[in-house]
Nucleic acid binder design. Structure first.
Length: 597
RNA sequence: GCGCUAGUAGCUCAGAGGAUAGAGCAACGGAUUUCUAAUCCGUGGGUCGCAGGUUCGAUCCCUGCCUGGCGUACCA
């Protein structure tokens, strides 16, 4: 399918082995030959043994003999049960250019495999600004959306903002008591940060009252903060505020509206910096009552049962019983999620729903999906929790109490500033919008790339010192490869050099040229595999490998100063294809490419 | 206790049963009158947590153990 000699080999091999258990659809794959081995591609015959019902040794003998006589093959060498193939330069370039020259086509899934997928991510609370943990979530969510969209799926990006509840009332209460009527305008502080400051003030005040309480009543000293919350004056006042909110008390509602609007304005700015555009934002204040009716209906149908203590539960077999409605009739977390899951289904009729949510909620989502299934919705099988690990710092976990939380906006500003300094070092003449834009692209590219490099499920370490660099396995490394190609293109254009239509691929014989073309040709398969696994990190690895292959080529082969003009044109054509692949891949991760660096 | 998850170079991480286990950073040594050195080339660095098992072949699968993280709410 990809390389002609490999697909020919796939057709020919079964003829050598009449006992083979294969049909006409049977194909074989070649891998890129390891660096330390002689060859361009390698066929692993161990893997073919089962289908061909013969020994790896005999298969590799047959494959080697067949390939040695193939017109595209310069040499084929058998080592153990591997066949290492060196292709003729013309064959390499013909086969790879066919793929990368028609990227759009190569990358898209067949229409019947394209689905409508709803992805929910970010899901912040409106009581404080976003931090590094949100940045990982946002990056994973937006990149997954872009990746799936690139292979042809119809993607809907959803945010569900937690804008109500006791924690929201905490910042509101602190503002009432200590706010003196300040606003984002009067202080010049970004709205979400201003509200977050009051959340901090609240916790300080609460801690003070808890300390006093424990001093006054030594018998309570061992109780947890949670247990003592309603024993404090401020705790009671907060509880009262939540009740007033639920009763629709105008003054509380007004304050809530005002402070939330500050936070939303702040979030909008954060999302804009990252390049996030949600198709829709649900507000929990509008959805938090949704699940209750469903529970009542399910109770009648026998999906749920009422326990002796009055709580409604779902029996989830091995996972045990799960309370879906408290004995006082109020909702729990999962009740709302049941409601919003159905609401999202009704609103968008997706064929698949994805939640980008931390891995501490794995069990919660298993239960949610089991409940939806139990309620009789077959599409419950197409619900997917993309669980990702926490972000730790060299000092340990991020803790707001210890002030170690890395703020999202601060981080963006820092990355951009460092990118700006690095950019100015190379080109001091840059100023104004061009400088700002380039710094933003490089800084944000470095940050997103760094976060996407890790497998989503791993608990990752964020080292501010190391993460802030732009050398090595970084986004700017890949961007830089693109910038180098752009520069070559500009100079080529100055000389009136264009690839033209009749590229003579046979002129590209250097090992680094062949390796570059072969690496690039694996892009569509890599992209589709990453999409199938919902894992951007494999694409990141691929782009690094490709950029590395390009930089090696760059050092070895001159485009503008080649042996002759035909070779220059061929190399230029190769470079253009590579740049398209790199830019396309970064685009599928929502990372932009600067024109120059 | 039970469940999930991780343990790979000094550090951060890749390695969907296959070759002599890789990359970046850090260390050391080289490359620029040359299409951008945010680059390239090289050197050193490993009992893949430990012990068994399955297999022609195990970092990968199975079992047990050790160590860390998370979960096990009528919290979200």
């Amino acid at each position: 399918m990809k390389f002609k000699c490999i697909s020919d080999l796939g057709k020919a091999l079964p003829e050598f082995f009449p006992q083979a258990n294969v049909n006409d659809e049977w194909t074989i794959e070649a891998e890129i030959c390891p660096q330390n081995m002689e060859g361009d591609l390698t066929v692993n015959c161990f893997k073919l043994a089962r289908d061909l019902k013969s020994s790896p040794d005999k298969i590799s003998d047959a494959a080697t003999e067949y390939l040695q006589n193939h017109e595209d093959v310069a040499s084929a060498e058998k080592i153990k049960a591997f066949v290492n193939i060196t292709l003729t330069p013309a064959a390499v370039m013909r086969d790879t250019a066919a793929i990368i020259g028609d990227l759009d086509n190569a990358v898209k899934l067949p229409e019947n495999e394209c689905r409508r997928i709803l992805i929910e991510y970010s899901a912040p609370n409106t009581n404080k600004p976003q931090h590094l943990g949100h940045v990982r979530n946002n990056t994973l969510g937006m990149s997954l959306a872009a990746l799936l969209r690139r292979v042809g799926h119809d993607i809907i990006e959803i945010n569900l903002v937690n804008d109500r509840g006791i924690h929201i009332c905490k910042s509101m209460l602190a503002y009432q008591r200590f706010g003196n009527g300040v606003t984002p305008e009067s202080t010049g502080i970004k709205g979400d940060h201003l509200v977050g400051d009051f959340y901090v003030k609240y916790n300080d005040a609460l801690k003070e009252q808890l300390d006093e309480l424990r001093k006054a009543k030594p018998e309570l000293a061992d109780k947890s903060d949670e247990d003592l919350f309603l024993e404090t004056e401020i705790g009671q006042a907060t509880q009262k505020m939540l009740q007033d909110w639920e009763a629709g008390e105008p003054e509380v509602r007004q304050l809530w509206q005002t402070m939330n609007s500050w936070v939303f304005a702040g979030f909008a700015q954060t999302y804009d910096t990252m390049g996030i555009k949600f198709n829709h934002t649900y507000l929990e204040s509008e959805t938090y009552l949704l699940g209750k009716d469903l529970i009542a209906a399910g109770l009648e149908k026998g999906v749920f049962t009422r326990r002796d203590d009055g709580a409604v539960i779902a029996d989830l077999g091995k996972m045990g019983p799960k309370v879906v409605l408290r004995s006082d009739g109020t909702s729990v977390y999962i009740t709302q999620d049941i409601g919003t899951t159905l609401k999202k289904y009704e609103d968008y009729k997706p064929q698949e729903q994805v939640w980008v949510v931390g891995d501490e909620q794995i069990l919660h989502f298993k239960m949610l999906f089991a409940i939806i299934k139990k309620m009789g919705y077959d599409w419950a099988d197409d619900l997917y929790h993309m669980a990702y690990g926490m972000v730790n710092l060299p000092t340990g976990k991020m803790k707001s109490r210890e002030g170690t939380v890395v703020d999202a906006d601060d981080l963006f500003a820092e990355m951009t500033e460092l990118a700006k300094q690095a950019t100015l070092e190379r080109d001091p003449s840059l100023t104004g919008e061009e400088l700002e834009e380039r710094a933003a692209i490089i800084g944000m590219g470095a940050l997103k790339f760094m976060l996407l490099k890790f497998n989503p499920k791993t608990t990752m370490m964020f080292d501010p010192q190391a993460s802030v660099k732009f050398v090595g396995d970084t986004g700017p490394y890949v961007q830089y490869a693109c910038a180098r190609i752009n520069s070559i293109m500009r100079k080529a254009a100055d000389k009136g050099l264009t690839p033209g239509v009749d590229v003579d691929w046979s002129l590209l014989t250097a090992p680094s040229e062949k390796a570059l073309a072969i690496q690039a040709s694996y892009y569509p398969a890599t992209l589709q595999a990453a999409a199938a696994k919902k894992d951007c990190s494999t694409l990141v690895t691929f782009l690094l490998d490709l950029a590395k292959a390009f930089n090696r080529f760059y050092g070895e082969c001159s485009v503008l100063d080649a042996d002759n003009e035909a070779q220059s044109k061929a190399r230029l054509a190769l470079c253009l294809n590579v740049r398209d692949v790199l830019a396309d891949g970064l685009g599928a991760l929502t990372i932009k490419v600067p024109e120059a660096m």
